[in-house]
Amino acid sequence: MWDIFLQSINKSYTESGEKAVNDVSLHVEEGKLFGLIGPDGAGKTTLFRILTTLILADSGTASVGGYDVVKDYKVIRKSIGYMPGRFSLYQDLTVKENLRFFATLFNTTIQDNYGLIEDIYKQIEPFNDRKAGKLSGGMKQKLALCCALIHSPKVLFLDEPTTGVDAVSRKEFWGMLKNLKSKGITIMVSTPYMDEASLCEEIALIQEGNIMSVNTPDEIIAQYPDMLYAIKSPGMNQLLQELRKSELVATANSFGEYHHITFSKQGSMELLLKSLHRSDVEMKPIRPTIEDCFIHLMTHE
C-alpha cells in the first residue's frame, strides 16, 4: 500500500528558529492525486523534503508506503519520484543526456519504462539534442517530469511544478498528471494557484505551517459556512469601498470581474440593493471557489 502518512510533524527553520510546519498530520491514500495548496512560505517545501527523506522533522512521524522516512530512507528513495521546486536539470546537458543520466542513476534505461513517459516524452523528443538550458519553461517542466518518472516510481512528489508557467502550459501539465494517476501512481503536488485545487481529488489548504483543512475540493466548498454572492456594477473600486463600509455586509473581496460578499446577520440581497443607490447592479448567489474557502479559513483562525 503506497499511502503517505504524516503524524504530528513539527519542523523549525535552523537559522531563525521560526516554525516552518506546525503539528501537521495528513493521510494520502494510494492512487490519489493529492494537492497541497498554499502561498509561498506556507511550509509546502518543508513537508515535501520530510517525505522525500531529505530533512528530518523535529518531532512527529512520517511514512511513505509504510516505510519510515528516518529508518527506511533507502527503500523510500528507491520507490519515489521527486521534482523539487527549483529543479532545473543540467542546463549544459541535452534532453537525451539528461534523461539517460537519470535513467542510469536509477538503475534502469529509457526503453524499460518507455510506456510510462511515452506521452510526455513524445512532445520533447524533437528537441533531443538541444541543451536543457535552451528549452522553454513548459518544455523544461516536461523533461523534469520525465526524469522524475524514469524509474517508474510508486509515489510522485511534485513541488510547485506549475509556478511561473503560463496558463496554457499549466493546463497541459495537469492533463499529464491525470494521465499518470490513471496508471496507479500516487501523486502529491503543491501549488500556490488556488484555481488548480479543483483539479486534485483531495487537497490540504496550508498557511503559515498550519493545515487549515483537508478534504475533497467539493467537500471543502460544501463546508463554506455562509451564503456567498457575486456582485458587479460600474465603478468596481468605489463599489468595494461602499460594500466594506456597509453594515449589511460581513465580508467583501474582489474576485476578477465580480466582488464576492457575505452578509451580516441583518443583511440581505434586497436590503443591500436598496442601500447602494446604484441603478446598474448585478447580484447573484454563487458557489464558493477554493480561494473563497482559503480566505475564509485564513481570516477566521
Binding site: P39, D40, P192, N237, I295, M298
Partner: peptide
C-alpha cells in the same frame, strides 16, 4: 503577486488602486 496568499494579494491590489487614484 506571484506566490502571495489570497488575502495579501487583494490588499496589494487595494494599494495599486490607491496609487492609480
Amino acid at each position: 503577486t506571484g506566490g502571495v496568499d489570497p488575502v495579501t494579494r487583494r490588499q496589494f491590489w487595494d494599494m495599486i488602486n490607491q496609487a492609480s487614484e
